[in-house]
Simulated scan of single mutants.
Amino acid sequence: MRVKRQKCHRKSVRFYTSCFGLRQPFKVLCDGTFVHHLITNTIKPADTAISNILSAAPVKLFTTRCVLAELKRLGTSYFQALEAAHQLFTASCDHEKNKSADACIKDVIGQNNPEHFFVATQDTDLRKKFQEIPGVPIIFGLRNSLFLESPSAFQRQFVKTSEEARLHMTALDRKMLQKRSRNRSVDEEANNSSGENEDFVDQKIGIQDERKTPTARKATSMKDRVQFKRKKAKGPNPLSCRKKSREKPKLVLEKEKKDGENSVRSRSRKRKRSCGGKNMEKDG
C-alpha cells in the first residue's frame, strides 16, 4: 500500500513540475493547523518527512506573520506549535494589518501562485478553495502520515485548455506574421530591381568585350585556360637494369693477336751486327 501511495505522489509532483513550472528545492507554505498536527503526532523532522513524500531534495518550509500572530492568540495550548513555527522561514505578505491565517495565505498564493508554493494545511475549506486555483499542490496530514493531494479536475481541465490555446494563433501573433510577410515582399522587390540593374551592367560589359581586338581576346582566353605540364619521358631505372659487360669483342681480340705475332716476327728477322768485322778491317 505504501509503494502505491508513493507512486501516486510521484505522478502528482511530475504533473505540477511539467505543467506549472515548480522546481526544486520545493517551497512549502505551512499554516498553524498543519504545524500543530506535526507537533501532536510527533512527525519529526518535518522537512525530511515532507521531502520523502515529494521524492525530492530537502525542502524549504515557510509561514507568514499572520499565522504566527494567530498561533500566539490561541494561548498556551499552541505554545509548542508557535515555537516550531518561529523556526520556519517567513514569507512576505503585503497587507499592513494582520489578517486571519487563511486570508493571509490566500493573498500570498493569489490567482496563479507566482512563488510556486506547496500549501500544507489541515483546513478542509482552505483545501477546497485551493483546488479551484491552478498550480497549487496541497499537503495534509492523517494521523502520523503525510499525503499529497492529486490534481483536481479543475486543474487538469485548465492544463488541457491552455495546451489547446497554444496551438491556435493569437491576435498578436497574427499581426507579427503579417508584418514579417510585408517586410519579406519589400525585400524581394528590392532584390529583383537590383538583379535587373546587374543584368543591364553585364550586357554593357559583354558589348565592350566584343569590340576588343581578336589578339586581345586570344591573349585573355589563353591566360584563363588551365595549363598542364607535360610529363617528360624518363630513362629506365638504373637499379633495375643489367650492368654492361666489360669483355672486349672478338674482332678486337683477333687484331691484337695478329699485331703481337707480327711484332715477334719482325724482331726475329732483325740481324745483329757484330763488332768483330770492324776490328779485322782495321788490322788489315
Results as ranks from 00 to 15, higher is better:
76 T>E: 15
117 F>P: 00
17 T>F: 03
10 R>A: 14
277 G>V: 11
277 G>H: 05
173 D>A: 15
222 M>I: 09
12 S>D: 07
62 F>L: 03
191 N>A: 14
186 V>K: 10
38 L>A: 09
194 S>Y: 08
209 D>F: 06
192 N>F: 12
150 S>M: 07
88 L>R: 00
165 A>G: 05
90 T>H: 10
176 M>V: 04
220 T>R: 13
79 F>W: 04
99 K>C: 02
226 V>D: 07
200 F>E: 10
2 R>I: 08
173 D>C: 05
38 L>T: 04
192 N>T: 10
48 T>L: 09
201 V>L: 13
134 P>Y: 03
148 L>Q: 02
170 T>F: 08
189 E>Y: 11
92 S>W: 11
153 A>D: 13
30 C>W: 00
148 L>G: 01
239 L>H: 14
175 K>M: 09
202 D>R: 11
29 L>H: 02
101 A>R: 00
271 R>S: 11
165 A>S: 15
261 E>A: 05
234 K>L: 14
101 A>W: 00
70 E>I: 01
244 K>E: 10
20 F>V: 03
224 D>K: 11
196 E>T: 06
96 E>Q: 10
249 P>I: 03
107 D>G: 03
144 N>Y: 07
273 R>C: 03
41 N>R: 05
265 R>A: 09
267 R>T: 12
128 K>S: 11
102 D>P: 00
47 D>P: 02
238 P>T: 09
232 K>T: 07
276 G>D: 09
58 P>D: 09
207 I>M: 10
